[in-house]
């Protein structure tokens, strides 16, 4: 409810306008940076033609894909096309770069949404419970397990999980997409690390919040109702938690390359790493822009959440 009130206030509208402009500036900066930096990784021609290809066919290839022009010319042409929302063609897939990226992003977005929802709910619940009795049995177990979970390499967990749960036990499919069952392993593997991390941050800031002056005051005043103390403390503890959630979600939106690679999940991370290694610049740029746009939107949401949670913050 507070959110609707919030959106109607004039200050937030100017804030949103300013942020839109600021984001556009960062996006342009990002495009320039990625365009020129990715060009530093060399000429793609040799990658696309057989090693035995003649000098003439190499020239031809460069000509077709506009790689012969000086960089500034290529950049101007790219920006011109971009204004018409033309993201260029993928060299590797011979299709519009944006198509490749959006197809992958659709999967990544679903994966990120499911994983982060589960992580957020679980981490906040478990983390707060652990903080309520610091050093208690529950706290120790939760901390220990979450730390171990957060410290194991995900590709290792993924391969072991496939061997154990798919081959030996036959509970879930090894990889791929298709049914609900196919989502279980990738989501579980992706869940582990952000869960361990966010749980720790929730626990940490809950401890601080619970020992802060006003909670102590509340307790001293005789407010024995645990839920009320809990909600008060949580509200205060959430600020740093949200930042970390945002960071983790951004990581997922950028594509969970390892998990996507191992499970054959057709997400944007896989599209991006392939494009980077194959010097398919148009796809790299399109992927960067799409994910950046999503991340900007998410950061905006986070800033709004800050203001909702802590009315003292004004933009």
């Amino acid at each position: 409810m507070s959110l609707t009130l919030f959106a109607e206030s004039p200050s937030i509208r100017t804030f949103l306008g300013k942020r839109a402009i600021a984001s556009a500036i960062s996006l342009v900066g990002l495009v320039i940076l990625v365009f020129f930096l990715s060009r530093l990784t060399g000429d793609p021609t040799a990658l696309y033609l057989p090693v035995d290809a003649s000098q003439e066919s190499r020239e031809q290839f460069r000509e077709i894909h506009g790689l012969n022009d000086p960089l500034p010319v290529q950049f101007a042409r790219y920006m011109g096309d971009l204004l018409r929302l033309d993201f260029g063609m993928s060299i590797r897939r011979a299709e519009p770069a944006l198509d490749s990226v959006l197809r992958g992003f659709k999967w990544t977005l679903q994966l990120a949404l499911i994983t982060m929802s589960l992580v957020t709910v679980m981490a906040i619940v478990v983390g707060s419970l652990a903080a309520f009795r610091v050093g208690g049995v529950f706290d120790r177990i939760a901390t220990f397990c979450s730390l171990i979970a957060a410290s194991a390499p995900d590709f290792w967990i993924a391969i072991v999980a496939i061997v154990v749960f798919s081959v030996n036990l036959g509970w879930v499919p090894t990889s791929g997409t298709g049914t609900v069952w196919h989502w279980i392993l990738p989501v579980s593997v992706l869940f582990i690390r952000p869960f361990g991390l966010i749980l720790q941050v929730v626990r940490g800031s809950m401890i601080t919040a619970l020992s802060s002056a006003y909670v102590k005051t509340a307790r001293a005043k005789g407010v024995l109702d645990r839920p009320i103390i809990f909600v008060h403390a949580l509200r205060n503890a959430l600020l740093p938690v949200i930042t970390v959630i945002g960071d983790q979600a951004a990581g997922l939106l950028n594509g969970a390359v390892i998990v996507e690679t191992i499970f054959g999940f057709p997400g944007v991370g896989k599209v991006m790493i392939d494009a980077i290694l194959q010097r398919d610049f148009a796809v790299v740029l399109a992927a960067v822009m799409v994910t950046a746009f999503a991340i900007f939107l998410m950061n905006l949401l986070i800033d709004i959440l800050y203001a909702v949670l802590d009315p003292r913050i004004r933009y």
Partner: peptide, 21 residues
């Protein structure tokens, strides 16, 4: 804005660029 740019700059691309040069 700088943080936004870094956050959305794919770390793998950064790795490939730096380790290529």
């Amino acid at each position: 804005r700088l943080a936004d740019v870094i956050m959305s700059f794919p770390s793998l691309l950064l790795a490939v660029i730096v380790l290529y040069m």
